[in-house]
């Protein structure tokens, strides 16, 4: 029973840890499917986290916080679009720039506005997204096996967790069942064909980037308003890059993305749980190995040893009309 409880706990933290990855990963999916590489997921999450926590604490409302997080994150996505779509700049360079601007400005503005060493004030419980207890969760807690699964794993998360997981089928539906999704995939594979059909490549790509901004904004809000009660400098800590890795791991497909993020979240949860405890057969696993595992797995996948990851064909190439 102890083992079972331990497993439930690890799975519960797996869900919590994989939500920001999942949101960022789906965000990346929109832009990369439309042919725009986005190294700047990290930065957009960070500004989202900052804007969310800062405005939630100023306006005393979690929903205003979420709205601001999305707004600012979309603004940054549009800067990326302005550089890489309108001015046909290098998309990777632009993404790197966004990460820098985000990292610097969140700390500096945070320090200038709140004077807490780059933090935002700790959020009160009504300024955060609290846990939603599902009906009957407490009643069934004592039921063996199923009880804890229902009350710990399924119930008791914040609304953003459910949003993240619902975004997966929604993204699948948008991508594979709507006209917008079809065109978006087409623009990522062969923009010239889309252009010939009389559809604006730039506007399509801008719309994809807006979707990206919305999702990274929610991811940021989750970090600073659910996982943590306020903004802490550099709180994304490479999650944007892990999300990018997960996106490649998922071969740019939404459902795969969910499993990839759950896997990376699980590795993270496990490494926290196993800190210092020896495993049977393998012995003591260094924490650093567990932390590096998502990156190592992605490199192995990229090397083509576990299937082949083929990115959208027009990814990273600015579209030049009439040539």
């Amino acid at each position: 029973m102890d083992l079972f409880n331990a497993i439930i706990q690890v799975l519960d933290s797996t869900i919590r840890l994989s939500v920001p990855l999942l949101l960022a990963c789906l965000a990346g999916l929109y832009s990369e499917r439309a042919g725009i590489f986005d190294i700047g997921l990290e930065g957009k999450m960070l500004v989202g986290a900052f804007a969310g926590a800062a405005s939630a604490s100023v306006f005393h409302s979690a929903y205003i916080g979420l709205g601001m997080a999305i707004l600012i994150s979309v603004a940054f996505a549009l800067i990326h679009g302005f550089a890489s779509i309108t001015h046909r700049g290098n998309q990777i360079v632009s993404g790197v720039a966004i990460n820098f601007i985000a990292a610097g400005s969140t700390i500096m503005l945070g320090q200038a506005w709140f004077q807490q060493g780059g933090r935002t004030p700790a959020l009160a419980s009504d300024e955060r997204f609290g846990a939603i207890i599902w009906p009957g969760a407490d009643a069934v807690r004592s039921v063996p096996i199923l009880g804890p699964i229902y009350s710990e794993l399924i119930s008791g998360h914040s609304v953003l967790v459910y949003v993240a997981f619902l975004a997966v089928p929604f993204t699948w539906w948008v991508l594979f069942r709507t006209r917008f999704g079809l065109r978006m995939r087409a623009v990522g594979e062969n923009p010239a064909a889309v252009d010939t059909a009389g559809i604006s490549v730039a506007w399509l790509r801008y719309r994809a980037l807006i979707c990206t901004g919305v999702l990274t904004g929610i991811a940021g809000a989750y970090l600073s308003m659910v996982q943590n009660g306020g903004f802490v400098k550099d709180m994304t800590a490479g999650k944007g890059y892990i999300a990018l890795a997960a996106l490649i791991f998922a071969k740019w497909k939404p459902v795969n993305a969910m499993f990839a993020c759950l896997l990376f979240g699980f590795l993270d949860a496990l490494s926290i749980r196993l800190q210092g405890t020896p495993l049977p057969l393998i012995g003591k696993v260094p924490v650093q190995l567990m932390q590096a595992l998502p990156y190592i797995l992605t490199v192995i996948l990229l090397a083509g040893f576990i299937g082949k990851a083929i990115p959208p064909r027009a990814g990273g190439v600015p579209y030049v009309k009439e040539r």
Binding site: A83, N90, S94
Partner: peptide, 17 residues
Amino acid sequence: DMIVIIQGLVILFAGAL
């Protein structure tokens, strides 16, 4: 961190834009 912002802006304007 002002430097980090300037760095980002330089990368944006001298690189991407």
